[in-house]
Every structure is written in C-alpha cells, then in structure tokens.
Design a protein around this nucleic acid. Structure first.
Lengths: 193, 193
DNA sequence: GCAAATTAATGATTTATTCAAG
DNA sequence: CTTGAATAAATCATTAATTTGC
C-alpha cells in the first residue's frame, strides 16, 4: 500500500484533541518557541511539522471566530422577539448558570450552595477582533451527581410525585462570556411543536 | 407581525453556550428530570422546550461521534506513519504542554465520591473508539410523547402547577411509542439529499 | 450593494439495533 | 422467543450563511 504521497498533514485524533484542548485553554497564536514545543510534543503521535501547528491555530481561530460571529448575528437580528416574551426578565443575567433568577421551584434541594460560587467573571469579548475566547478560569462545578441522586421509583403518574429529584445541574461556566448579554432571541418557535 | 411562525427552535447564543458547556462537562443523554432542569434554566434565555434539549443532546452527541469517526478514519490512513516513526508508541502520555498554559479547569469539586468521572474521560485523549458514556442514565425515551409534557416555560401540567416541585418522570410507564409493526412512511429512501 | 440561488448547519423525525425482562 | 424500553444511526426539512449575477 502506497503511503499516500502525503500532500498535507493529517492530524491524528490525539493531535487534534490536544490542539483543541490547548485552544480551549487559551492558546491562540503561539510563538515560534511554543510552536516548537507543541510540535515536539505532538510529533509523538504522528508526523507533524511546525507549520502544521501554526496553520492549525490560524485556521481554527478564524473558524471559531466565524462561528461565533454567526451566532451573534443571528442573535442580534432577532433580539426584538425576546422583549415581549418576558417583560421583566433582567436583560443581562449573570453568566453563572444558577442564580437568584432561578424559579424557586427548581431550587428545592439546597444543593445550590455549592454552585453559588460559580459566578464567573463576566467578560466582554471583543468578538470579531481576535479575542473571542478568553482563558476560562472558572472552576467547573461538579459533575452530574444528580444522576446518582435520582431516585426513580416505579411507574408514577406523570406528575404530582413529590419524590426527591436531583440536585442542580452541573453546568459550570467555563468562560461564559455571553456575547450580547442584553439581548436574547428566538425568532423561531412560537408554536408548541 | 413577523413572528416568523418558525417551526423549529433556534437556540440563543446563551443557550447554546450553556448546552455546549454541559456537553463538555460530560452530559450526554440527560434523563427527563435533568432535561426539565436544563430546560427550566435555559428558558430564562429564550423560548425552549424539553424536547429541544433532548434533541440537542442527541444530535450533538451523534455529530460529535461522527466527527470523531472521521478523524479516526483519517487516522488509520496514516497509521503507518507512526509505526515507523517510533517503535511502539506507548499509550498516550500525559500532555505536559498544557500544564502551564492553563490551570486545570476541569477539576471538579470533589463534591461527590460517586465515582462519576465523566469528565475525566473528556480529558482522555487516546480513545480509539469514541468517548463512551457510562450506561446509567436510561430514563426516558418515549420518542416524543413525553416531550409534550415537558414544558417548563408555559404550559405547566395542571396537576402539579401550584407545587413547583420538579416531578420525576416515570422512567417506565406509558409506552406510547408506536408499535414497530405499524409501518409508517417510507422515509428510508436513499434519495438525494 | 442587493437579492436570488446555492451550500452548509443543524433542529426534528424516523428507523434500526441493542439489551433486559418475562 | 417475544416484548418493550432506550439509544444510536440515518434521514428529512428548515434555517442561516455564502456565493453569484446584476
């Protein structure tokens, strides 16, 4: 089997995963030294060159930005919708997932105490510039231990079953930079599907 | 007015980010109760229903897997490269590169010693298959019937409305799913798409 | 610059497969 | 062996993004 005259670099899954992880960790445009280091490390998993690393970060950054921009565009275009949906819904809800705004009926477990600390730092991203992903520093909460907490009994009526449910979901905010915090949207779904 | 009687849910950036974050945190197939919670929370950012959450996780999981598969495919293509590069590439060593780039933001608080290390797998880089999820969930699955019941934002089931407690959903109850015998539309056409 | 045509993403459905009870 | 629950894979369908001709 001919070795496929390698015209271009083909990242192995490991390489890809590591690169993505690094990207998530905040690496965006590594300098020469970093690239060398990264390349050295990744070469363990397969053939790779410095330029591959360089290009990868270039491309990935650009494409992530594009993706983000897309979401933002959609968001802004449709932001008017949200206005009449929830009147007094505080526009810029804190990034932390679980917060005061939570309807009381979901906070019955008291497990919240752990999550209160999730209040990450809000950060205004410069969006289309270059910085669209800042180093996420928030400590993600816990996992879905709620699953373990689940005590599902036998068939119960669809509702009215006051058995203990689960804790709060584990959503943590790893870099929850809400892009346009003051606007929401959903032009769609007006009808209950 | 242009309510855009759209037929399908359009996630807001916030919702999307939260969902993605949850996915990264290890959430794969939330059960009914979890979906309720997630929905409740996300509804703060825009209209959303339980089924949307359900579908989102289904799709996202599937597509991530698909993506991974492609990578693997490519990987195998170039397997030989690694072979002659290093004798016997031992199992993936820890990625030391990341260490100084980013503090371990994956450390979940040891809130539980349940042994749920879903996230741990997220970090694992060298899986040849796909990230496998532990098979515990399995809580709901009626194709779409249950979804009708899962609506946090507006239609609250009359029975438990006053009491805002999250009600567990029957893990196994009304089998509403159409029997397999009922042959439906023949959508299995390998038609052009 | 704009708007129709094309393409890419992705939400929503359907079908097939797997596994556990009975 | 049959049945039913649960999930994954495949597909359909709609929306948003791009491209293209004017």
């Amino acid at each position: 089997m001919p070795q496929t005259p390698s015209t271009r670099w083909c990242p192995t899954p490991e390489q890809l995963m590591i690169l993505e992880e690094m990207y998530r960790s905040g690496v965006r445009t590594p300098n020469a030294a970093q690239i060398q280091q990264i390349t050295a490390h990744l070469s363990y998993y397969g053939k790779i060159e410095g330029k591959n690393v360089f290009y990868w970060f270039q491309n990935h950054k650009a494409r992530e930005r594009q993706k983000l921009r897309r979401r933002l565009g959609r968001h802004q275009q449709l932001l008017h919708y949200q206005l009449h949906q929830s009147e007094d819904a505080p526009p810029p809800p804190p990034s932390p997932i679980l917060q005061h705004h939570m309807p009381p009926h979901f906070l019955h477990q008291g497990a919240t105490s752990q999550g209160l600390d999730l209040v990450g730092k809000l950060e205004t991203v410069g969006m289309e510039e270059e910085e669209e992903e800042e180093p996420m520093t928030s400590a993600m909460g816990f996992e879905q231990e709620w699953m373990a907490t689940m005590d599902v009994s036998s068939a119960v009526p669809p509702c009215c079953r006051p058995l203990k449910t689960l804790d709060l979901f584990p959503v943590k905010s790893t870099g929850l930079k809400d892009e346009c915090s003051s606007s929401k949207s959903s032009s769609c779904s007006t009808s209950t599907n």
